[in-house]
């Protein structure tokens, strides 16, 4: 993964792409997948205290319209399926923000029988926000970082998804179509 980022950095952006990236970073539309508990942190970010709209960031209704897929909190296996479908419906360029500790390593659901632990194994996450819950300031910082990455042309999660499509599909298949008992298999997933 690191190698790829290095590679991307080496590739020079064309001037056109630089300009377009400027517009992209100034207008980030979110699609929040609010099944996790992290969603409760978003309203303060949107409303008058922190006012996300200052940066041109706003909520959108459907995946077709959105740029950023915001996965708030844990993702159970059931929601993972919907997540993948939603992610694949988004037009490129598309980015994913993993929100909260659960998307990084499962958080408090680390040993749960039906919650995935590493979101990045199934859809390419561009940036993670750690914390349980992350503070609104953390969300703003993550968005700031994402904006910088977009401007530098580093946020290329969607390319990664295309390049390693088989790997992602294999992981998705493994978890979605697994057979047998659900209990006691949580440890196996993180090998």
């Amino acid at each position: 993964m690191l190698n790829e980022i290095e590679q991307n950095r080496k590739e020079r952006q064309s001037a056109w792409e630089y300009v377009i990236n400027y517009f992209r970073k100034r207008s980030i539309w979110l699609l929040h997948y609010c099944t996790g508990c992290g969603a409760v942190e978003l309203p303060p970010v949107m409303t008058s205290r922190w006012d996300l709209e200052r940066f041109g960031v706003g909520p959108m209704a459907t995946p077709r319209q959105a740029d950023v897929f915001l996965v708030t909190g844990y993702a159970s296996i059931k929601t993972l399926k919907r997540m993948i479908r939603t992610y694949e419906q988004m037009p490129k360029p598309r980015w994913v923000i993993g929100f909260g500790a659960c998307t990084i390593n499962g958080g408090i659901y680390y040993k749960s029988y039906n919650v995935i632990n590493k979101l990045d194994r199934y859809i390419p996450v561009d940036i993670f926000i750690s914390g349980c819950m992350p503070r609104p300031e953390a969300i703003l910082a993550a968005l700031e970082e994402l904006r910088n990455m977009i401007q530098r042309g580093e946020a290329k999660g969607y390319d990664r998804y295309v390049k390693n499509y088989d790997w992602y599909k294999k992981n998705q298949k493994e978890i979605l179509e697994r057979e047998g008992s659900l209990f006691g298999e949580a440890d196996d997933e993180n090998k």
């Binding site: 517009f23 207008s27 490129k92 360029p93």
Partner: peptide, 12 residues
């Protein structure tokens, strides 16, 4: 900014 971004984007 929004419009230009949308026009420069892949559409389905």
């Amino acid at each position: 900014i929004d419009v230009i971004k949308l026009l420069a984007r892949e559409s389905i």
